[in-house]
């Protein structure tokens, strides 16, 4: 079935439900902030959020009470420091306690790869000797049937819905991503449903060197949201707003300041007007 072109509020209302396992992916580049903000506006609750790098978008969603569980591998503000809302949830249970399932990047990545591949588990060299083996990291040791080597096995990840931001889609809902492509393809293919926000809907997708095309029939819904990755960025359209990432440290440190900022810049904003400092 072809992807439907729709609006962001309609797509979130239809595809993201309370209690769902939701993966918003985008590795520094193309982080789907506008979709995260729409999930916050629609007051989704008890989500199991999956992301390699929770980044500011999950700091905001956790602080606004959307999450029950976080499956992740690196929860910091890149180059800046802590994610204060994430820390407040883990250290002090505010606004609610947060169940953690943590991995290394390689481990969580291979969980997506297994999900996308239709395999029950992924395999990698990793985890041996680390504390991650004993924590709630859903990892086990397996023996290679051919060489006898001990390796790490991680269970396939199959989110209910994957949400990504891409540069372009055509009117049939075929999607193209270029630049740093992260783990978005695997997240979409691993998930039951997918929502792709795009900078632009174009008449013809001009194929880019190194670009990834997701055919319309593996995507559930496409919504045109220009600037939908800000303060992250979309190569060819925008720059990463490093000033925002640095400024977020002070905004997010304090619960009241965070709530006031979210109220003004997200909750009371019309859909897909990107929040800015």
């Amino acid at each position: 079935m072809m992807a439907r072109l729709t609006s962001l509020p309609e797509a979130v209302a239809e595809l993201v439900g309370d209690g769902d396992c939701v993966a918003l992916e985008g590795f520094t580049h193309l982080i789907p902030f506008a979709a995260g903000h729409e999930i916050i506006r629609q007051r989704r609750r008890d989500l199991s959020l999956v992301r390699l790098t929770p980044d500011l978008v999950y700091d905001q969603m956790i602080g606004m009470g959307c999450a029950r569980k976080l499956i992740f591998s690196w929860g910091g503000n890149p180059g800046v420091g802590s994610l204060h809302r994430f820390r407040d949830a883990v250290e002090r249970g505010w606004p609610a306690s947060l169940e953690l399932e943590e991995h290394s990047h390689a481990g969580l990545t291979n969980r997506y790869v297994a999900g996308a591949s239709g395999l029950p588990f992924g395999v990698l060299r990793g985890y041996a000797g680390t504390g991650l083996m004993e924590q709630r990291s859903s990892v086990a040791r397996v023996r290679c049937p051919f060489t006898g080597e001990e390796l790490a096995a991680v269970p396939a990840l199959r989110p209910d819905v994957a949400v990504i931001h891409a540069q372009q889609a055509d009117r049939d809902g075929n999607v193209q991503i270029w630049g740093i492509t992260g783990v978005q393809k695997e997240a979409v293919l691993a998930a039951t449903r997918s929502l792709v926000t795009v900078e632009e809907v174009v008449d013809d997708l001009a194929l880019r060197p190194g670009g990834i095309v997701l055919p319309s029939w593996v995507v559930t819904a496409v919504a045109e949201v220009p600037g939908g990755a800000q303060p992250s960025y979309a190569a060819g359209y925008s720059q990463r707003d490093n000033g925002f990432y640095q400024g977020w440290d002070a905004i997010s440190r304090d619960r009241e300041r965070f709530q006031a900022w979210m109220q003004t810049n997200v909750v009371e904003r019309a859909s897909h007007a990107a929040g800015r400092l």
């Binding site: 591998s73 690196w74 820390r87 991995h103 290394s104 990047h105 985890y127 041996a128 680390t130 991650l132």
Partner: peptide, 16 residues
Amino acid sequence: PEVRLPGAGGAPEISA
């Protein structure tokens, strides 16, 4: 935890 740090990222496999 007293302080929740970012976590593993790429470090375990870089070390390995």
